[in-house]
Simulated assay, not measured.
Amino acid sequence: MTRKTTPRPNKPDDFEARWRKHRLLVRLGQVLIGAGALVAIIHWLAHLEAFGPGQPPGWLDLAAGYPTGLVLVIAGAILAGRKRPTAKS
């Protein structure tokens, strides 16, 4: 049994929708950059014992310290550095 399909009408390219998506992803990237910087700063302050005596445990250094901050900054920079959509593509 074959199903008949009706062809969809060609939707014109919606530049405004692509622009809104682009701006949303750029803003998300900027938020990720800020969050990564915040993670790294808080981790640095913890090493300076600003939140009380004692250093963060070793697993925290490897998992949630500078590496996490760096990954967030890099992911945010990738999103925030997107190319602008053009009207032709």
Rank of each mutant, 00 (worst) to 15 (best):
H43T: 14
M1G: 04
E49T: 08
F51R: 02
A87M: 09
R84L: 07
D14I: 01
L62N: 11
K83A: 13
R82K: 14
K88H: 13
H22G: 08
P57Y: 05
G81L: 04
A87G: 03
Q55Y: 12
V71C: 13
G54P: 05
P67D: 10
D61H: 10
K21T: 05
E16H: 03
V39T: 03
L60G: 14
H43L: 14
W19R: 10
K88A: 15
K11A: 14
A35D: 05
V31G: 06
V71F: 09
R27F: 01
G69Q: 02
K11H: 14
A64V: 10
A17Q: 04
R84P: 05
L48G: 07
P85L: 14
L45K: 09
G58N: 15
T86C: 12
T86N: 10
S89P: 00
A46S: 02
A50D: 00
Q55C: 11
K83C: 12
L60W: 15
P12I: 01
L24Y: 05
A46L: 03
L25R: 10
L32V: 14
A46N: 02
V31C: 09
L48A: 13
V31I: 11
I74P: 03
K83Y: 08
A35W: 00
I78M: 07
P56D: 08
R20W: 02
V71T: 12
R82S: 14
G54H: 09
L28M: 15
K88L: 15
N10Y: 03
V73G: 13
I33S: 01
K21M: 10
A64T: 13
H43Y: 15
K4H: 06
A87L: 13
G81I: 08
T5I: 06
L72R: 00
L70V: 04
I74A: 05
V39Y: 00
M1E: 04
R18P: 11
G36S: 02
R23G: 09
P53G: 00
N10M: 04
